[in-house]
Write a protein that binds this DNA or RNA. Structure first.
Lengths: 223, 223
DNA sequence: AATATATGTTACTTATGGGTAACATCCAGG
DNA sequence: CCTGGATGTTACCCATAAGTAACATATATT
C-alpha cells in the first residue's frame, strides 16, 4: 500500500523521510492495518483460533510490534467491534430536518446496518464471543450496542406514531430486526450471488413486508 | 437429581444396587447430566472460558471422569449442539396428513424453533463459535443446520405456492427468519418480562406481519 | 472365587499462546 | 553531537487447561 521508493527514475524526488505530520499519520494507518488484518482473521478462523503471531505474520512484522499499538489481544478485538458499532451508530443518527416517515428512516437504518454486517468490522461484532473481552471492554461494547438498540426502538416507535409502522411490541421488534441483520455476518460470503446492497435491500424488504400476503385471500400477482 | 439413599426410614427398602438395565440407564443419565451442565456453563461463560474442571466441579466429580463419557471437550460441545439441532429438526418434520397451509406450518415451526432457542441446548447452537469444533464435528453440524435450512425453505416455498405466503426470495427469507430466531438465544434471559412461549408467539407474529401496516394509508385501530 | 468391566481418583505431561525484557535502529531537535 | 522517543527485533517466561497414566474400587459375569 505504501509507495515503495523507485530509485533512479524520480521526478520531484519525494523525500524518503516522512514529515512529522506524516509520521503521526503513518502510525494511525498502521494501527488500522492491524485492526483490519485482525478483524479478517478473527472472522475467518475465530478469535481464539487466531494468535497474535498469525496477525503479525499477515502484516510482515512480529508479535511484540503489535504491542506498540495495542495493550492486549482483547483490546484489538474491542477496537474492531467498536469500529463496526460506530458505523452502525452513524447510520442510526437522526438526519436533522428530515421529513421522512418513521418507516422510511427505519428502512434507511436497516440497509446501512445490513451493509455494515458484510464488512470486516461489522462482522466482528457478531462473529465474536463477547466473553472473550475483558469486563471493562465488554461493558463498553454493551453500552454501544444498547445505544444502537435504543435508537432502533426510537425509530420504530416514531413510525408507529406517524402510522407508517404497524403497532407492535417495540422491544421484540427491535430484537428481531437486529437479530435478522446481525445474522448476515454469518451467512454472507463475498463470492455469493447477492451483493451487499442487494442483501440489504432484500432483507429490509422482507422485514417490512413480512411473510403474509398483503391480500390474504388472493395470491399476489407478482410485485 | 438421583434419589439419595435414605437410611433408616425405608419402606419397601429399594436395593442400593442397580439392576443391569438400570446401570445402563444411569450411564445415559450421567452423560446427559454432563451435557446439561456443560451447555449451561458454555452459554453463561463462553466455551473457551469454561474448563472441563469447571464442568466437573459443577457435577461433584473430577475432570478425568468426564472422559468416561466423552472423547474430548469439543465432543461435549458437539453433542450439546446436536441436541439443540435435533429439537429444531423434529419441529421441522412435516406432519403427515396435515391440511395446514404453508404459512400455518411455518408459524408452528417458527414457534417451536424459537422456544428451543430459550433452552440450554438450543442456545448452545448459536452462542458457541463453530470454530471451536474439530473439522469433522463442524462438518456434521453444518450438515444438520443445512438440513433445517432446507426444511425451512421447503415450508416457505410451499406457502408461496398455496398463496398463504407472499412471493419473496426464499433463500433470503429463510436466512432472515433463522437469524431472527437464533438471536433469541442472545437476548432471552429467564428472568425477563416475556415467557418463552410469549417470545415465540410475538416473534413469529412480527415475522409474519412485517413492519408495514396492512392498510398503509391509515393507522391500524389496534390488533 | 476369579476375572473383566465400568467408574472414579490423584498426579502428571505438554502444547499453546499471551505477554514481557532486553536490545537494535532510526529519525527529530536542542 | 547526542539524547530521547518511536518502532522494531530476538529470546524468553509462564499460566492455563486439555488430555493421559497409573491406580483404586465397586459391580457384573463365568
Amino acid at each position: 500500500m505504501a509507495p515503495s521508493k523507485q530509485t533512479g527514475t524520480a521526478q520531484a524526488e519525494p523525500s524518503p523521510w516522512r514529515s512529522p505530520a506524516q509520521r503521526g499519520h503513518d502510525r494511525a494507518l498502521k494501527r488500522e492495518a492491524v485492526l483490519k488484518a485482525a478483524a479478517r482473521l478473527f472472522n475467518e478462523k475465530g478469535f481464539h483460533a487466531t494468535s497474535l503471531d498469525d496477525v503479525a505474520r499477515q502484516l510482515n512484522v512480529t508479535k511484540p510490534t503489535l504491542y506498540h499499538y495495542f495493550r492486549s489481544k482483547d483490546d484489538v478485538l474491542f477496537e474492531c467491534c467498536r469500529m463496526g458499532l460506530e458505523m452502525i451508530e452513524a447510520a442510526a443518527a437522526p438526519v436533522p430536518g428530515s421529513r421522512a416517515s418513521g418507516l422510511e428512516r427505519l428502512r434507511a437504518l436497516m440497509e446501512k446496518y445490513a451493509e455494515a454486517m458484510t464488512m470486516d468490522f461489522g462482522m466482528s461484532i457478531t462473529r465474536t464471543p463477547d466473553t472473550a473481552l475483558s469486563p471493562e471492554n465488554r461493558a463498553e461494547l454493551r453500552r454501544l450496542k444498547s445505544q444502537i438498540d435504543q435508537a432502533l426502538r426510537g425509530v420504530i416507535a416514531s413510525g408507529i406514531d406517524d402510522g407508517s409502522i404497524a403497532p407492535c411490541d417495540v422491544r421484540t421488534a427491535a430484537f428481531t430486526i437486529a437479530g435478522a441483520l446481525n445474522a448476515i455476518a454469518h451467512w454472507y460470503k463475498p463470492g455469493g450471488p447477492l451483493s451487499p446492497a442487494e442483501i440489504a435491500h432484500q432483507t429490509a424488504d422482507f422485514l417490512i413486508q413480512g411473510l403474509a400476503p398483503r391480500t390474504p385471500e388472493r395470491r399476489q400477482p407478482k410485485r
